[in-house]
Design a protein around this nucleic acid. Structure first.
Lengths: 138, 138
DNA sequence: TTCGCTGCAAATGCTTTGCAAACAG
DNA sequence: CTGTTTGCAAAGCATTTGCAGCGAA
């Protein structure tokens, strides 16, 4: 057979304390954070880690499908552990207030649409923006 | 009193050929384009326009609510005239193939959720990502 | 004639890359 | 040991800003 035992095209991830620290922090906050915020937080905690490493770790985690990535309006990328409870954001254009909302219907709709087009391994991003009651124009 | 007569509240937009060219191009393509793509296209056409102006025009158009803006995975911002038929994108993570999909249900869901939280003047962004049939892992 | 608009060049801010030293396996 | 990972410094990109000249109202 052509069944070889180890063609290992996978680089082979190593367990370092920096990687552990990033994952641990993401687990703790369980919400979206930018690479720089995570870096600041880790340094404050005393974990000696470079910004470059944070970026590279986040990139490899996202490639491995372990974290979700999305872009903020200002062009920053924010990351969050995949797992957890999936929710979306409703954000006020004026004051920036954010409300977390759930949308089982949307989840199902996205899965269905994607499946209809032959897509698999589906993920999605939904962002609702508006003006909150406090700042509605008269 | 300290009540002066002209604190000049409204900036007052002017009609320039550059602004017209940007709007005209957006009307023609009627799809999302990055600032740099729009700039290249305009120069090829012979419209003398600076990249800075394209950026500033797009920014003022989006503040005026005349165009939609969203961020691509690579951190670029893409713009499209608001009007037109509202649709969302289903994009393949591997080959980048994009399918336009509609989601009346999502539109309604977004409106409802936002209204429940006292939000008005609602807008939303939905992006579905997945792996298309051509590139599905075995 | 007025300001706003334009656009070049330079500055910003986020993210990535080059490379030598530190480290896990 | 051997190949990864780290992290500093520097490079890359998209986007923004400073400022002098141009042009629409």
């Amino acid at each position: 057979m052509s069944q070889v035992s180890k063609p290992v095209p996978v680089p082979g991830r190593r367990a370092t304390k920096q990687r552990a620290a990033v994952v641990e922090l993401l687990t703790t906050v369980n919400d979206f954070r930018s690479a720089q915020e995570l870096h600041d937080e880790l340094r404050k905690r005393g974990d000696g880690i470079g910004l470059t490493t944070v970026y590279r770790t986040l990139q490899s985690l996202s490639e491995a499908g372990e974290i979700d990535v999305l872009r903020t309006g200002s062009g920053e990328a924010v990351y969050r552990l995949c797992s957890s409870h999936h929710h979306h954001h409703l954000v006020c254009r004026v004051c920036g207030r954010t409300v977390e909302v759930e949308g089982p219907a949307v989840e199902r709709w996205a899965e269905k649409i994607a499946a209809e087009h032959g897509f698999t391994d589906i993920g999605h991003t939904v962002e609702i923006t508006g003006t909150c009651a406090e700042h509605a124009a008269p």
